[in-house]
Structure formats: structure tokens, C-alpha cells
């Protein structure tokens, strides 16, 4: 575990490889034929992956199951929708408001749940989602049960010109940039003092206490920084769909976030991204219909934790070790037969 989190400076070679991979990833839609489906699927993957990273930070480094991240997801969507429809402001303003509001909401929720652990924490965060859903559903000022339609195209003024994200093709670079930003942020977090302390609080609370770590502060800080990640994904989702409604609170998003994180394995930087990719590809391109997709998604989530708690990466590790052991014993057997022949 510790060897994945060292203060290793990025060597030149690594930097070049990473830059090359990012470059290739950016042209993935063209590599897959450049069709509108390719663009929309990859944009959705990037977007949903960002959504999942918010939960990943809490689940992987605090070991807590937040069922309230749909609140932050919805905050992003609603802020983008309401501000751009009613106030006509550009994407930077709605993004800043999204960050501000989600941090405020997470601080409130974090303070309320400060003394709760495990299932009570999960329940209270879920309760927060139910309450917010009820308010969003009944309050006509935020669209009520109909939601808000006709969200204008995402406009990002960049000084000399304004980038407009109207189509899936135009939204892809934004989703891609947001994903990169998130990955960079999470990678930094993993190496940061907060990230390592959070992991210590999760893995060895007694040690953390003996070192004078204020556990509540660490938990609160991690929860608060996780919120804007998921919220910004919701922000972009609103522009992609041009509609925002109470369906952003649906259990689907919650189950999706958790499944994407545990599928590949917790505490793996690219885990949630790969998990999201697998799940979205199944749902968009190999869909068996909504109800079957639910069965599959739920089953994957349960089966991974029951059979391979360390996720697919854990399975790969397991296989590799078995293979190594096998080749080693094979080698020994060969040697023995050789010895027997000699004798």
C-alpha cells in the first residue's frame, strides 16, 4: 500500500509517457470513428468518472460510504440550470457557484455527521439526499417535479474568444479537461498530508490518535473536498442533457458511483475511471434494457465485494501470483526430473 503513495518526483520519462497517453486519450473519439455516439459515450464516461471520484475520495481514503453524494451531483446540475436559464450567466460563474454551494453543503453535512461512523454516517447522508430530493421535487422555484428545460449551451469566455459547448463534439474537450483536472487533484490528494493522514485514520485509528491527529477534522476536510468534484460533474451533466430535474437524485447515480469505485479496486488512481468506462459501455452500447441493466449493475456491485473484495485489480494480482507460483514449481519439477535423469 505505502509504495503506491511515495513522494516520488515525476521523472522525465514518466512525464513524457503520461503526456503521450493524455494526447492519445484526447483523440479517442476520432479513433473510435468520430461518430456522434463515440463522442457522447466518451463524454459521458469522462463526466461520470468525475462524479465517481468524489465518492472514491471518501470511500477509499476514509473508508466511509457516503450515500449523500447525489446531493452534490444535483447541486451542480441545479446551479448550472437555474443560473444559466434565469440569470443568463456564463459557465465560469455557474462553475464557481457550484463549487461554493457544494462546499457549503458538504461543510454543513460534515459537521452534522461529525460524530457518526459507518452505517449511521451512511444513513444520515442518505437522509440528506432524501430531504433535498423532496425539496427539489416540491419547490416550484427550482423547477419542482418538472425540472428545468432549455438550458442554453455552455459558454466559457476565454478572454479573446468564447468557447461554446453546444454539441457532444464540443463538450468532449471540456469533459476531458475536467477529468484531467480531477485526476490531477486526486493524485495530489493521495500524496498530500491530508490524504496520507486520512488513510491512517481509516486503517489505523489508534495510531492516528497516538500521533495527535484530530480525526474529526481530517474526516470533515476529506468530505468537504470530495463534494465539489462530484458537483462539477453534475454541472457539466446539466449542459450535456440541457435538462435538470429531480431524477438527478435517483438511486442509479448512487449505485453507479459505488460500483465504479469498487469494480477495479479502491485506492487505485485510475480505478474509478476504468470502472465507469466498463459500466457506461455496457449501459450505452450493450444495453439489455433498463431493468436488466439494473440487475447487472447491482449484481456487479455485490459480486465484486463478495468474491473479489480488492476488485478486478485484486483479481489480476491473485492470478499473477498463482501464475508465478506455478512457473516456479514447474521450474522445480523440471530440475527434479533432470536430476532423476542424471542419477
Amino acid at each position: 500500500m505505502t509504495d503506491s503513495l511515495p513522494h516520488r518526483p515525476l521523472s522525465m520519462l514518466r512525464a513524457v509517457v503520461v503526456a503521450a497517453l493524455i494526447g492519445v486519450a484526447f483523440f479517442l473519439p476520432q479513433l473510435f470513428g468520430g461518430s456522434s455516439v463515440a463522442y457522447s459515450t466518451l463524454t459521458t464516461i469522462a463526466l461520470f468518472a468525475v462524479m465517481c471520484y468524489g465518492v472514491d475520495v471518501v470511500l477509499s481514503y476514509l473508508g466511509e460510504v457516503s450515500l449523500g453524494h447525489t446531493v452534490f451531483w444535483a447541486i451542480g446540475g441545479y446551479v448550472a440550470a437555474l443560473m444559466s436559464v434565469h440569470l443568463g450567466v456564463n459557465g465560469w460563474v455557474t462553475a464557481l457557484a457550484t463549487i461554493g454551494l457544494s462546499v457549503a453543503a458538504a461543510t454543513f453535512l460534515g459537521l452534522v455527521t461529525l460524530r457518526t461512523r459507518e452505517f449511521v454516517f451512511s444513513l444520515v447522508t442518505y437522509a440528506a439526499a432524501v430531504v433535498t430530493h423532496e425539496i427539489a421535487f416540491n419547490w416550484d422555484a427550482v423547477g419542482g417535479s418538472d425540472g428545468t428545460v432549455g438550458i442554453p449551451a455552455l459558454k466559457l469566455p476565454l478572454g479573446f474568444f468564447t468557447y461554446v459547448g453546444g454539441t457532444q463534439e464540443e463538450l468532449w474537450p471540456i469533459a476531458f479537461a475536467l477529468l484531467l483536472l480531477t485526476l490531477f487533484f486526486v493524485a495530489r490528494f493521495r500524496r498530500s498530508r491530508l490524504g496520507t493522514t486520512a488513510l491512517m485514520v481509516h486503517m489505523n485509528p489508534a495510531l492516528a490518535t497516538s500521533l495527535g491527529v484530530d480525526q474529526r477534522r481530517v474526516r470533515l476536510a476529506v468530505f468537504v473536498i470530495s463534494a465539489p468534484i462530484t458537483a462539477l460533474a453534475g454541472w457539466l451533466y446539466a449542459y450535456q442533457r440541457a435538462y435538470v430535474g429531480p431524477d438527478m437524485f435517483e438511486a442509479y447515480f448512487l449505485v453507479m458511483m459505488l460500483t465504479a469505485v469498487v469494480l477495479v479496486g479502491r485506492r487505485i488512481l485510475l480505478g474509478p475511471l476504468l470502472g465507469t468506462a466498463v459500466l457506461i459501455i455496457q449501459q450505452n452500447l450493450l444495453s439489455l434494457g433498463g431493468d436488466w441493466n439494473k440487475v447487472i449493475l447491482g449484481f456487479v456491485l455485490a459480486a465484486v465485494l463478495i468474491f473479489w473484495p480488492a476488485g478486478l485489480m485484486g483479481l489480476v494480482d491473485h492470478m499473477r501470483q498463482r501464475w508465478l507460483r506455478k512457473t516456479r514449481t514447474n521450474g522445480r519439477e523440471n530440475k527434479r526430473s533432470y536430476m532423476e535423469e542424471v542419477q
Binding site: 470511500l59 473508508g63 466511509e64 460510504v65 450515500l67 459507518e118 452505517f119 451512511s122 438511486a251 448512487l254 449505485v255 459505488l258 460500483t259 469498487v262 433498463g290 431493468d291 436488466w292 441493466n293 439494473k294 440487475v295 447487472i296 449493475l297 447491482g298 449484481f299 456487479v300 456491485l301 455485490a302 465485494l305 463478495i306 473484495p309
Partner: peptide
């Protein structure tokens, strides 16, 4: 408990999808 929460959440989702089917 953490894994149990998530597993039961997943199984619940299976039951919901299966129920609709």
C-alpha cells in the same frame, strides 16, 4: 460493515430490477 452496506445496496438494486422484470 462497509462492504456489507454496499453489497446489500447492490442486491437491493438487483431486486428492484428483477421485480420490474
Amino acid at each position: 460493515l462497509t462492504s456489507l452496506m454496499i453489497v446489500t445496496l447492490g442486491l437491493g438494486y438487483v431486486i428492484q430490477g428483477g421485480g420490474a422484470l
